[in-house]
Write a protein that binds this DNA or RNA. Structure first.
Lengths: 298, 298
DNA sequence: TCCATGCATAAAGAGAACTGATCCATGAAA
DNA sequence: TTTCATGGATCAGTTCTCTTTATGCATGGA
């Protein structure tokens, strides 16, 4: 059975307007309908109720007792709906939930989010971090910043930057072997997380096809930011995305001995559901990222 | 523009049910829809709002923040509507407005309406009397009892009884001329309202083709019940519908000297708008009339 | 691993809803 | 009085929303 058969909601909506204005024509104007449609809906409702709601007098309609009782209730009910709906839209536009990795959050967003909030005082930001790409149908998320291929079905994604990496270490540690001058020098030092697949990728790019990392003291940190902290503490060489550690280089806590970077093929992307690309808050964040990321692409 | 574009009322209705039960399938059952339809409507609403309302988790859905804020408001609004609508139906069914002539009201309804109200304690009766046939689109009326042809467009009408008439007078008046034995005797008496077109019709039926009524003392009462009162007071002979005065005959206040009745072609009918024939109160009144009127016809 | 549950998606069809044209009644203005 | 303007009703035609059937997918439990 059609839903509209049970409670003729559209007819009630039309009735509410017509009762408020005591005119079918005006109701039509208010609702963007023709007078014909209003007449049709009112009759529909009257048939459903089994009672006339309007008395048709020439050049004006008036409410019957029944209509007069019904009208204020309908006005009230539709007011509640309208308010709930519009306040929902407002609130929804005021809260931006960003999902990203712990590393990107701490190393990049932390530095730039303040600017976004200055520019968008009406938008509160909530940051969620996780290792996996967020599923927008299962979690409350507006946008995600992730490394990957940029191919996610149903999502619109914008290229942010290449996810390439290079060895980094503390200046003091480099000094212990008289400076790091060529890639092979790194093998004289402790490698932080030698199981990381980035290491063989980088060494291969550096011309050292098959470095023996297997026998080395093994310590898995799992998150780049922890590895970076270990490197800054002089505990070894870490392989990091230099974009994230520009500050630490500037402050002398880390050095990047080689310009050479390697990549594992996955880049950083901004992604959000295709259907929500016109949302105000999403547009605001997208434009903010475009301004902050020189390599941003649509 | 379609009305449903502005506020997707049907989608909200579906959302309300789904949010209350946290299940699309159950919502479908409650509303008499398939799960597919529910899914479609929810998506429609989410697109309209620009914000997901449900989180789809395996084997169950849960409300997002936005959904949780919206749901109680919708439940409230729909409750108001539902209550207003059902109380309207109850009230509407509890008040029966009968339009009829003053004569029918005082001479027939007055005697029988008590029975109707005993049988239908939930229905209050309001009686409106007027000379003209009521226009159901312009006046608050549920049923009308009228004499006429029974042909009223848009109205369902039931034959009640023939609208035939015969002379009636007080026994005392009849005695003054030694009893009324043949129609011509009536011409010896004062005729109440000799201008009434019923008189020539009846005399013609009685075989007196062209009685001279023109020179008689003229008094126009206009309503049958006033003429009847005058006849009972012995002021003359009135031409009346005997069905209305059976009581007065039984009490000896009036006599009907001849069985002969004449008719002007119009009968008594019960009428109401075709579209409202299934209304409970109208059905109740129709069945009541059927029981009280031996000549009632569908 | 297999089955039951619950939602999503696609395609197609029904019919509700809307429109445009026209008609009618009435009150006001000429 | 006649004419005009206003406001609804009616009718037929059309659009497109909504619904259904069929199917797929993911997950939790047996």
């Amino acid at each position: 059975m059609k839903l509209s058969r049970q409670i003729p909601l559209n007819a009630l909506r039309v009735f509410e307007s017509a009762a408020r204005q005591l005119s079918f024509t005006k109701a039509g104007e208010e609702l963007g309908l023709t007078q014909t449609a209003v007449s049709y809906q009112i009759k529909l409702l009257e048939d459903q109720i089994g009672e006339p709601l309007f008395l048709r007098r020439p050049r004006q309609v008036t409410l019957t007792d029944a209509g007069a009782r019904l009208a204020p209730k309908m006005t009230e009910a539709f007011a509640i709906m309208g308010e709930a709906l519009s306040s929902l839209k407002e609130e929804a536009e005021g809260m931006l939930v960003i999902h990203t990795t712990a590393t990107f959050a701490s190393r990049w967003l932390a530095h730039h989010l303040g600017t976004f909030q200055m520019e968008n005082p009406g938008i509160a930001v909530r940051l969620e971090t996780s290792q996996e790409m967020v599923d927008f149908t299962r979690a409350e998320a507006d946008v995600a910043i992730r490394s990957g291929s940029g191919e996610w079905p149903g999502l619109k994604s914008h290229f942010l930057m290449k996810s390439d990496f290079t060895p980094m270490l503390s200046p003091a540690l480099a000094e212990t072997i008289g400076g790091v001058n060529e890639p092979a020098d790194l093998l004289k030092l402790r490698i932080i997380d030698p199981g990381d697949i980035w290491w063989p990728l980088w060494f291969e790019a550096a011309g050292i096809a098959d470095p023996d990392l297997s026998g080395r003291p093994f310590s898995r940190y799992g998150a780049q930011s922890f590895e970076a902290a270990a490197a800054m503490a002089g505990q070894g060489v870490a392989i990091l995305k230099p974009e994230f550690y520009a500050d630490d280089v500037a402050l002398g806590r880390l050095i990047q001995p080689f310009d050479l970077r390697a990549t594992d093929g996955s880049d950083y992307w901004l992604a959000y559901p295709e259907a929500r690309r016109h949302s105000k808050k999403i547009r605001a964040f997208r434009e903010f990222m475009r301004g902050k990321m020189p390599t941003f692409r649509d």
